[in-house]
Design a binder for these strands. Structure first.
Length: 425
DNA sequence: TCTGGGGTCCTAGGACCC
DNA sequence: TCTGGGGTCCTAGGACCC
């Protein structure tokens, strides 16, 4: 049995790098990418980080800095990032036998056994060079016997230039040296709340956490943190998951470009979210039995009265028919809608999934007569919309969508739309 | 004036049962 | 006069991730 060995490959400043790739004129310009509605900064190029633009800050708070230094801001262009991500991932799949796509810009590779046949650092450089050459995106590589240590190795590769972007952390002494340098909140799985509680116990560095008694940690915190302690000591507890597990819930929600005060507009928004969520559900090949609708005012405003509500319904039997969910969603909305508030966000959630056709109806359930035709209708609709988005839609989704997303600095769909291909002159 | 979206897992506590 | 304990299931909430 070989001991586990992981590499974590993580794209540098991914969204900002994608934008820069198609704008060579911005090669040395600070660039940031904004969240939906152009609300927060969610990605920063190296230059923007250096200027002190913080991750996650609301744009209006960073505006001065942005203007003063001529930072170029882009609205998020997920179609572009998803396409670039796919190219990176398929390149990785050609380089390593088993790959877990962990997020849009990161993947874990299974390198078990490779330490006998390869120089691991050299292999890391090969990954880096290949992706830079084939796709134009810079990545960093961290290699270690557990996922948690591979994450830290990657962090080190990003932080220290002289590593050349690759850190091999298979050596125990090297692990401890790095752990001693890192504050505990850099550890994967240790967020803000846990950091505070750990610090109260005198645990400030990653090494101190690694040296804590796992049983004590379990009793003070949870099995999750205990697992982290073990992983920091080189005991692999989190396996590579090559196959994406089937989803357990699907959420579609969005903050509005402008506050909603009109119920009809809210109906449109909810209809839009239902239609998206159901489409995703059909793509997953699942039926859902549980639906939740929620809405809320802004949690940041102190002059608006706060209000937040959600309501759920259990369907008689699982479905993926948009029309069924639309009907229920409108009824749920009637129950939670209150006039007079300035709503900032709403959404829907589907859960309790079943494989189509395996649901065991109870004795009193109505038999399904129209399953087949409903299924065909939805299929046809998805097909029509896959060629040109929004070829057909439900009247309830509205036409103007005045509440829709604000995206004032959107880059072209360079790689996914024939009309918007980049032109080389 | 303006603060993202989409997920997962774990735990505590209540309801219920025997 | 005396009023259990243990198991399971569900849900809400909290924590984390990118």
């Amino acid at each position: 049995m070989t001991t586990p060995l992981f590499a974590l490959v993580d794209c540098n400043n991914f969204y900002a790098s994608c934008e820069k790739l198609f704008r060579p004129d911005l090669a040395h310009t600070p660039v940031v990418v904004l969240s939906n509605n152009d609300g927060c900064v969610v990605a920063r190029s190296r230059e923007a980080k250096k200027l002190g633009v913080k991750m996650g800050v609301p744009v209006f708070q960073a505006r001065e800095l942005i203007q003063k230094h001529g930072v170029v801001a882009f609205s998020s262009n997920y179609a572009l990032y998803a396409d670039m991500s796919q190219r990176v991932m398929s390149t990785l799949e050609s380089l390593a036998p088993r790959v877990e796509v962990y997020s849009i810009d990161e993947a874990f590779l299974d390198l078990s056994g490779m330490e006998n046949t390869h120089d691991l650092t050299e292999f890391g450089f090969t990954i880096r060079k290949t992706i830079l050459k084939w796709i134009g995106i810079t990545v960093c590589v961290g290699i270690a016997p557990t996922k948690t240590l591979a994450k830290l190795a990657n962090h080190a590769a990003k932080t220290w230039q002289k590593t050349g972007g690759v850190v091999d952390l298979t050596c125990k002494a090297r692990q401890r040296k790095l752990l001693a340098l890192l504050p505990v909140d850099e550890v994967w799985g240790i967020g803000g709340k846990l950091t505070k509680r750990l610090q109260a116990l005198g645990i400030h560095t990653a090494l101190q956490l690694a040296d804590a008694d796992p049983r004590f940690i379990r009793q003070q915190f949870s099995v999750v943190v205990e697992r982290t302690v073990r992983e920091l000591n080189g005991e692999s507890c989190i396996a590579l998951e090559e196959m994406a597990p089937t989803k357990k819930q699907i959420v579609s929600s969005r903050a509005f470009g402008e506050r909603i005060t009109d119920k009809q507009e809210m109906r449109e928004a909810i209809s839009e979210y239902i239609s998206r969520a159901c489409k995703k559900l059909r793509q997953e090949g699942q039926d859902a039995k549980h639906l939740t609708v929620f809405l809320r005012t802004s949690p940041f405003s102190d002059k608006d009265a706060p209000y937040s509500a959600s309501r759920s319904v259990e369907l008689d039997r699982p479905s993926s028919d948009t029309r069924v969910f639309l009907t229920h969603a409108m009824q749920l909305l009637d129950k939670i809608w209150v006039n007079g508030y300035r709503y900032a966000k709403a959404g829907v959630m589907l859960s309790d999934f079943y494989d189509p056709g395996i649901y065991q109806p109870s004795l009193f359930d109505m038999p399904a007569e129209d399953d087949e035709s409903a299924h065909r209708l939805m299929q046809l609709m998805d097909q029509l919309n896959s060629k040109h988005a929004k070829t057909v839609w439900f009247a309830g989704q509205g036409i103007s969508q005045s509440w829709g997303m604000k995206r004032e600095a959107l880059s072209p769909a360079y790689t996914t739309n024939w009309q918007q291909l980049p032109v080389a002159r």
